[in-house]
Design a protein around this nucleic acid. Structure first.
Length: 264
DNA sequence: GCGACAG
DNA sequence: ATCTTGTCGC
């Protein structure tokens, strides 16, 4: 009998040209890497000397969605000023399949991290904030965890939308947040199974739309929440927001360059 | 059977 | 992810 997940996987593979065997390989890779996942604080020193926090994101070209720009920024946690940024223009053939985002985005991001080790080792981030979930994932191993394990770097997963898991839905979560009961701006994401996947939080006073924070790797949920609070000038934490802004800007300038050569 | 499904 | 102008408010 085919499991629910295999049915989902099958439908996706048929719609996106990704073979089911490839999906099975992906699942095996996730389950294997997941064994190295650390869900507790394991930062340099005690975390008190946390100074450089990184953020990563990827933007795609609307005209040709296979062209992407991976971006890495590093900020000084005290001043929230960018001290480093780097970009990588690549062609991405791997399709987006919910639950397997890492296979599409991790390669470029890992390349950027490796390049930084050589170029600016002194600024290398002690922690990385990722545009995508950590353990808030069907198999408890989203992009943030995937990147964290492969780069052996503490990571925090930041989702702007909830990936429905274990009975959790956007509406149920938002309902809990609005029910002034937990007048708090943070609610724990506890699934029907009893597992805690992360938290939904209003990162700023005026944002109704929550942010979904989860453990990536080598960072506890409490620490992750604190760091998100510290870095949120707006709804999205600055490291990720800056990576997003600069990534789009890079693609925009790239397009202008292509247009010039085409028009002249 | 139908809908839901990070970016 | 990407699309896309105005508009409400400090």
């Amino acid at each position: 009998m085919m499991s629910e997940e295999e049915k989902q996987v099958k439908s996706y593979s048929e719609a996106s040209t990704t073979s089911s065997v490839e999906i099975q390989n992906w699942i095996e890779a996730q389950d294997l890497l997941k064994k190295k996942l650390i869900k507790e604080d394991d930062l340099e020193g005690n975390g008190d000397d946390l100074k450089y926090v990184g953020g990563v994101d990827i933007s795609f070209l609307k005209e040709d969605s296979s062209v992407a720009c991976g971006t890495l920024v590093v900020m000084d946690l005290q001043t929230l000023q960018v001290v480093y940024d780097d970009f990588s223009l690549v062609t991405v053939q791997v399709p987006y399949v919910p639950g397997f985002l890492a296979f599409r985005e991790a390669p470029v991001l890992l390349e950027l991290l490796e390049r930084m080790k050589k170029r600016a080792p002194l600024l290398y981030p002690q922690l990385l904030m990722v545009d995508g979930n950590g353990i808030l994932h069907p198999r408890g191993f989203g992009l943030a965890s995937h990147l964290g394990v492969l780069a052996n770097l503490p990571t925090i997963g930041i989702g702007k939308n909830l990936h429905h898991v274990d009975g959790l839905t956007q509406t149920s979560v938002r309902k809990l947040l609005s029910e002034g009961k937990n007048n708090d701006s943070i609610i724990t994401l506890k699934g029907i199974s009893g597992s805690i996947w992360g938290v939904a939080m209003r990162s700023t006073v005026d944002s109704l739309k929550p942010l979904y924070v989860s453990i990536g790797h080598r960072v506890s949920l409490d620490t992750a929440i604190e760091i998100v609070k510290i870095t949120c000038k707006y709804r999205v934490p600055e490291p990720i927001r800056q990576a997003d802004i600069r990534s789009r800007e890079y693609l925009r300038k790239f397009q202008m360059g292509v247009l010039e050569r085409t028009t002249s």
